[in-house]
Design a protein around this nucleic acid. Structure first.
Lengths: 222, 222
DNA sequence: ATGATTAAAAAAATCGATTATTGTGGCGGA
DNA sequence: TCCGCCACAATAATCGATTTTTTTAATCAT
């Protein structure tokens, strides 16, 4: 466990934020869709204020588009944006991984092994639900965690979220899935071996494969 | 003029957001200060809802810290964060400038010259008010605008805002000020000459000088 | 038909009041 | 004196109702 020191107690607004974020990442809403606030209000059983506060946060974060006097909508998916997000992921995650490998300590190694193990167990099971998603996110987060830059981590996380909207457009073929799973294991090996060059190459390959997959799905859906 | 195509009409919430953002960048609030919502409500003559929505957005953007059930506070200033922000600025703005120089067209050249000219005129006058800040921001924005990555531009803007909280901690000596002004002109020359290598070196020097200045101010204020 | 005009409906934004939570100060007991 | 407990005050969060704006639909003139 990443032993976080006590998040601030949940509030209606933060609860809705977390729920909506998940649903936006999982593709529960259609791209470009306009959000019907009253329907949401009813669905989650909250008042307008906390709901609107959550929507405002999501818009500032980039998971919604806010048009004054016209409410909120789910951002469209565009091929060029997927390419943009991917290019930046390559740069930023490559950068972060190198620094993480240089700076990560023994605790990091332990946490990385743990995160990889949990993910591998989830890989094995045929079902890939929310739990796998959580573990997968957690693995990648752990991988770059000790890079030393809070802002870099923040941006990477934001890009991950954006990328997920494309990645989760459809299911993955078992063969590709295995390759990606395998890469997670190799990333751990290279990280523990402190092989920054090979690790960076691998994370770039990893992101690239995911990109190509997401691109195919996007084109199919368009 | 950058001829933006009609922003969506202003709303109470977006108005307050813009005002508070400016005030947060200019150092109007003390670092670490807790925001008294009722005082703000009175000061800007708005209701709670639009005010809180603006605060939520600012928190998601990183200009405020939100603690559930404890309202909002201005983030503390920390030396390591300034260093973090600066490191990332070096990477991201360097990257963006290279790409902008490769991809910028004739319109960009024209706009860049225009932005530089307006800034130079403002440099000349002894007073450096909000207007100079606006032109300065606009110059740097124009410089990297055609880099081709919306997300990169977004992150750079966000880092600029964060950096400003440190930069505007105090006034600049005339001598250093002149050097920075001079660099703006040189950046234009190098951009027009499509000298990516030298331009990147210069923007890095520019950011570094600003960093050293900001660091001194921070240490004095601490 | 087409396009402009406007009345009605729907939706977004805002307000003022209520509820829930946190912070504060006093009091009593160790 | 110091700590824990409680009541009270202050603040944050939420609610339901109201106001404003946009969207839709219908009417009329060209």
């Amino acid at each position: 466990m990443t032993a976080r020191t006590q998040e601030s107690p949940e509030t209606g607004s933060s609860r809705i934020y977390a729920i909506l974020r998940k649903e936006l990442l999982s593709g529960h809403f259609a791209a470009g869709e306009k959000l019907a606030i009253n329907a949401l209000r009813e669905r989650y059983q909250v008042g307008l204020s906390p709901l609107r506060e959550a929507l405002n946060r999501l818009a500032a974060y980039g998971l919604l588009v806010q048009e004054n006097q016209r409410g909120f909508r789910v951002p469209a998916l565009r091929r060029e944006e997927l390419e943009d997000i991917t290019r930046l992921r390559l740069e930023l995650e490559g950068m972060a991984l190198e620094q993480a490998i240089e700076q990560g300590d023994a605790d990091w190694e332990a946490e990385l092994l743990a995160a990889a193990h949990r993910l591998k167990r989830a890989d094995a099971s045929t079902e890939r639900g929310e739990e796998w998603e959580r573990l997968h996110t957690q693995f990648h987060r752990t991988l770059v965690a000790p890079c030393g830059s809070q802002w870099l981590l923040r941006f990477i996380e934001q890009l991950h979220d954006q990328f997920d909207r494309y990645r989760r457009l459809g299911a993955t073929l078992a063969s590709v899935r295995e390759e990606l799973d395998e890469q997670h294991q190799q990333l751990v090996s290279l990280a523990l071996a402190r092989d920054t060059v090979a690790a960076r190459r691998l994370i770039e390959a990893h992101v690239t494969i995911s990109f190509e997959l997401a691109l195919k799905r996007f084109q199919r859906s368009a």
